[in-house]
Design a protein around this nucleic acid. Structure first.
Length: 280
DNA sequence: CAATATACCTGGATGC
DNA sequence: TGCATCCAGGTATATT
């Protein structure tokens, strides 16, 4: 389930060898992803062009082409985007394959088809990116992710802090797993209404978010070499989960039992002792 | 306007 | 063993 850290790890992996490579052939499945794959635009603006660099915004990867076009890829749920030897037989659910001039292939495999591929032409790229950017929340590692912003966004909202953190229009890149882990690290009960957080709790949210995401990126980064394999990269952060998927197990911090509840339709894990409802 | 529900999709786990 | 059912989860859209 790619959230910000997994997308960032993917980006860092691709950055090691993709910039400067020219796309020499494109094949795509006829399956519709979240949106149809823009085969025509891929042929016009990605085929025959070199990849300049790759950026990330929220959970999206932005492949900046040397001709000014931008190819946007969202990994959906399945986190399989990697460089593979072009001789490797195609796998089921390979939806996009970009052959490169060094005989490697960039393959996007998305069995559940929750991902998407977009192409912005050189002419429209700037405007599209600005519009795209405006719809998304602040990046957790940017200066905009600060107490003033969070209190201003959160003050009038009754929704649970966990839903608030997962709202991509407020903060970019936090999904269900990291929302659980961040709130444990911040000692905040996931059901606490966002509007009732005390200043110290907002500070804890900010610090914990950055710390957890950074740790996760570092742990995932240790498997970057797996990008050259065919099996995707598992990363190592899951062994560090403090609460996610640990319902009925003991809290590592206090030995009490981790609770599992449903918040906003999502499985939510927390330690009732370490994360009391408390709004100072 | 905020909050909640639903649709999209497949593979793996679980239940009978 | 095999079949049905549920669950996972990001995001756009619809509904309350």
């Amino acid at each position: 389930m790619p959230e910000l850290p997994e997308v960032e790890v993917t980006r860092l992996g691709l950055l090691m060898s993709l910039p400067g490579r020219c796309v020499t052939k494109i094949s795509s499945s006829n399956k519709r992803l979240r949106l149809p794959v823009p085969r025509k635009l891929l042929g016009e603006y990605v085929l025959g062009s070199a990849i300049a660099t790759i950026d990330r915004r929220a959970k999206y990867l932005l492949f900046r082409m040397q001709n000014g076009a931008i190819m946007v890829i969202h990994l959906g749920m399945t986190r399989k985007l990697g460089l593979i030897a072009s001789t490797t037989p195609p796998a089921p659910h390979d939806h996009l394959r970009l052959l490169l001039d060094d005989t490697m292939e960039l393959r996007f495999n998305d069995s559940r088809r929750f991902g998407c591929v977009l192409v912005w032409t050189p002419r429209e790229a700037e405007a599209m990116e600005a519009e795209f950017d405006a719809r998304l929340g602040v990046e957790p590692f940017s200066r905009k992710f600060n107490m003033q912003y969070l209190r201003q966004q959160g003050c009038s909202r009754k929704t649970a802090i966990k839903n608030f953190l997962m709202d991509g229009r407020v903060v970019a890149g936090i999904g269900n797993i990291y929302a659980n882990e961040i709130l444990f690290a911040a000692s905040i009960h996931p059901l606490t209404p966002a509007g009732l957080l005390a200043p110290g709790q907002w500070q804890a949210v900010i610090a914990s978010t950055r710390r957890i995401l950074k740790q996760a990126i570092r742990s995932g980064g240790s498997t970057i070499s797996d990008f050259l394999g065919s099996s995707g990269n598992p990363g190592y952060f899951q062994v560090q989960f403090k609460v996610y998927h640990r319902g009925d197990e003991k809290c590592h911090q206090c030995n009490n039992i981790i609770s599992k509840i449903i918040v906003g339709g999502r499985a939510t894990f927390f330690c009732p002792y370490c994360q009391p409802i408390k709004t100072e």
